[in-house]
């Protein structure tokens, strides 16, 4: 395949060096995949930690190989990490939306899972691909329904936070005066209150439903959003395009929504990706502590809590939701970083 491959590369104007590193990447990718398969499928539990180290090395090789191949195909600026992050988040959103249509085994109702084996090890070709927990509930199913909770709480809380924070922050930053003093006083007092204690107090008083946890997290985020929106509004409101809109007779609400909002929205949205990640971890921590949605309704946090007692001999019950949590938070942070670089005027200005 080298001859046509080379001419293709020349036509596309790429350097032969990329061509060589692309082939090397393809080799690395294949080797990594083989190693993954061997270490996962052919080594049994007696291999112990060596198995996990091999899996980690193999996945590293797969990633590096994929990176080289993708740069070979899509050009040197291709950011594989970002695309994998976007892929993971999209996948998560899809399975969370269509969870009820997926052919999953019972993961929520113990009475329906009496026949199922308990603490089964993950086996991709069985009916429980990621194994079962102590009650015989399907871990893949738990992961899917847990994703639904995590995403609803993360996105929901941030959406409420943005809506309230932007409205109040824009108004305070534009109208100034007494409104601004009052808003500043309120946000400062809310920020002075330890967020964890406020959160624990709220979830302890309210019943632990998805809606209540979402609202509690939104309350925590609102003062930060207000400050962010207000600070950006202050900076933009002094600029001449706002003055000229006012001179053309635009009314204040129109100036806020047409001139200021689109400018203030960008930094707020790029900041929000990071906040979503933080909230997903926070929700998982709360449900790990039993303060959020509780068993048998699965969330990533309470799955970790339920598997924790047998961590030594059945690590998969903790590892699966743990890895999902890690990947999700990592992906949101990665996307958030990129969004900030693109949209935040301070970072985007060359």
């Amino acid at each position: 395949m080298s001859a046509p491959g080379r001419s293709d590369a020349v036509i596309a104007g790429r350097l032969p060096l990329n061509h060589r590193s692309g082939l090397f990447g393809a080799g690395l990718l294949v080797a990594g995949l083989v190693l993954t398969w061997v270490s996962l499928m052919r080594l049994d539990a007696s291999a112990g930690f060596i198995k996990y180290i091999l899996v980690a090395v193999a996945l590293g090789a797969v990633f590096q190989g994929l990176k080289l191949v993708s740069k070979w195909i899509f050009g040197p600026l291709f950011d594989l990490g970002l695309w994998l992050s976007a892929l993971w988040i999209s996948l998560l959103v899809l399975i969370a939306v269509f969870a009820d249509l997926l052919p999953l085994r019972e993961s929520r109702d113990v009475s329906q899972a009496l026949q199922a084996p308990i603490r089964q090890r993950p086996n991709l070709f069985s009916s429980h691909p990621l194994g079962t927990d102590a009650q015989g509930l399907d871990i893949l199913g738990g992961l899917v329904y847990g994703a639904r909770v995590s995403l609803i709480v993360g996105f929901g809380a941030v959406l409420i936070g943005i809506t309230v924070g932007l409205t109040v922050g824009l108004a305070a930053g534009y109208y100034r005066g007494k409104l601004e003093s009052a808003v500043s006083f309120l946000t400062d007092s809310m920020l002075a209150f330890p967020p964890l204690i406020l959160l624990l107090a709220m979830v302890a008083v309210l019943s632990p439903t998805v809606a209540n946890v979402t609202v509690a997290l939104a309350v925590i985020s609102v003062p930060t959003y207000i400050r962010l929106a207000r600070a950006n509004t202050l900076a933009f409101a002094q600029r001449e395009f706002v003055l000229s809109a006012r001179l053309l007779g635009e009314r204040n609400p129109a100036i806020i929504s047409r001139e200021l909002l689109p400018n203030v929205l960008l930094p707020v949205v790029s900041f929000s990706f990071v906040i979503i990640a933080v909230f997903i971890v926070t929700e998982a921590s709360l449900s790990f502590l039993g303060l959020s949605i509780s068993r048998p309704n699965p969330t990533w946090g309470n799955m970790i809590a339920a598997g924790e007692t047998r961590l030594n001999d059945h690590p998969h019950a903790v590892a699966v939701p743990g890895v999902a949590l890690f990947l999700t938070v990592f992906s949101f942070n990665r996307i958030g970083d990129r969004a900030r670089k693109m949209w935040d005027p301070r970072e985007a200005k060359l």
């Binding site: 600029r239 001449e240 395009f241 001139e259 689109p262 400018n263 960008l266 005027p345």
Partner: peptide, 12 residues
């Protein structure tokens, strides 16, 4: 105005 970097609306 003085500074064309800031006098125009960046999102229009």
């Amino acid at each position: 105005f003085q500074d064309p970097m800031t006098s125009l609306n960046p999102v229009k």
